[in-house]
Amino acid sequence: QKPIVRVFLPNKQRTVVPARCGVTVRDSLKKALMMRGLIPECCAVYRIQDGEKKPIGWDTDISWLTGEELHVEVLE
């Protein structure tokens, strides 16, 4: 079983991306966001920890988040 990260996107959409070492959250999600007309710069990404949303940086190595759920939200 490959290491993955589940990602909840705006508009009730979601995707799953591989959690590859040395790849940033930005690079992992860029294609999924672009297909939906979004760019990382207009969004914020969060991980859910103890039921709370914790913001994470787009430059975080995605392999550190293996098995986690991330939420991407459009910044107002």
Score class of each variant (00 low, 15 high):
Lys54Asp: 09
Cys42Lys: 14
Ser28Gln: 08
Pro3Ala: 13
Asn11Gly: 11
Lys2Leu: 04
Val74Lys: 15
Lys12Phe: 04
Ile4Glu: 04
Gly51Trp: 06
Cys43Lys: 00
Ile39Asp: 14
Val23Lys: 14
Cys42Val: 05
Leu33Asn: 03
Met34Asp: 09
Leu29Ile: 12
Gly57Glu: 12
Lys2Gly: 02
Glu68Ile: 08
Lys2Cys: 03
Met35His: 15
Met34Thr: 15
Gly22Val: 01
Val7Asn: 00
Leu33Cys: 14
Val72Ala: 03
Asp59Ala: 06
Arg14Glu: 09
Leu75Thr: 14
Gln49Phe: 11
Lys2Ser: 06
Thr60Cys: 05
Lys53Val: 08
Tyr46Ser: 13
Val72His: 00
Val17Arg: 02
Arg14Gly: 11
Thr24Met: 07
Thr60Met: 08
Pro55Gln: 12
Ile62Pro: 01
Lys12Ile: 01
Gly57Phe: 07
Pro55Arg: 12
Gln13Ile: 05
Glu52Gly: 11
Pro55Ser: 12
Thr15Ile: 11
Tyr46Met: 11
Arg36Asn: 04
Phe8Asn: 13
Val23Leu: 07
Arg26Phe: 10
Val25Met: 13
Gln49Thr: 14
Arg47Phe: 09
Ala19Ser: 09
Lys2Arg: 02
Pro18Glu: 15
Thr24Ala: 06
Lys2Gln: 01
Thr15Cys: 05
Leu33Val: 04
Arg14Asp: 13
Asp59Asn: 07
Ala32Tyr: 04
Asp61Lys: 05
Asp50Phe: 05
Phe8Pro: 00
Arg6Met: 04
Val5Ile: 09
Glu52Trp: 04
Asp61Gly: 04
Ala44Val: 12
Lys54His: 08
Val74Glu: 14
Gly57Lys: 12
Arg20Gly: 07
Leu38Pro: 02
Pro55Phe: 13
Ile4Thr: 04
Leu70Lys: 01
Thr24Val: 04
Val74Gln: 15
Val5Cys: 10
Val5Ala: 02
Met35Glu: 14
Leu29Thr: 06
Glu76Cys: 05
Trp64Arg: 13
Arg6Thr: 06
Gly51Ser: 09
Gly67Val: 05
Tyr46Ile: 13
Ala32Cys: 12
Val5His: 00
Leu29Gly: 00
Gln1Gly: 12
Ala32Arg: 12
Val23Phe: 08
Tyr46His: 14
Val45Gln: 00
Pro18Lys: 14
Pro10Met: 01
Cys42Glu: 15
Gly37Glu: 15
Asp27Arg: 08
Val5Gln: 00
Gly57Cys: 14
Thr24Tyr: 03
Glu41His: 12
Glu52Asn: 10
Glu68Pro: 05
Gly37Tyr: 02
Ala19Gln: 02
Leu33Thr: 03
Asp27Asn: 05
Ser63Pro: 01
Arg14Gln: 14
Gly37Arg: 09
Val45Asn: 01
Ile4Lys: 03
Leu33Ala: 02
Leu38Cys: 06
Ser28Lys: 02
Leu70Trp: 02
Asn11Ile: 01
Ser63Thr: 11
Pro18Trp: 13
Arg47Cys: 06
Glu41Leu: 03
Trp64Met: 11
Ile56Asp: 01
Lys31Ala: 06
Thr60His: 09
Val7Cys: 08
Ser28Phe: 01
Asp59Val: 04
Arg14Trp: 10
His71Ile: 10
Leu70Asp: 00
Val72Pro: 00
Arg36Glu: 09
Lys2Ala: 02
Val45Pro: 11
Gly51Asn: 15
Asp61Glu: 08
Asp61Val: 03
Gly37Ser: 14
Gly57Ile: 12
Pro10Gly: 02
Glu68Asp: 09
His71Gln: 13
Gln49Met: 11
Thr66Lys: 12
Val23Cys: 11
Pro3Val: 04
Ile48Asn: 07
Ala32Glu: 05
Arg36Cys: 05
Ala19Val: 10
Lys30Asp: 08
Leu29Tyr: 00
Leu38Ala: 05
Asp59His: 05
Glu73Ser: 07
Leu75Asn: 12
Glu73Cys: 07
Ser63Leu: 04
Glu41Asp: 10
Leu9Pro: 00
Arg26Ala: 12
Val23Ser: 10
Thr66Met: 07
Asp50Glu: 12
Gly51His: 15
Pro10Thr: 01
Val72Asp: 00
Gly22Leu: 03
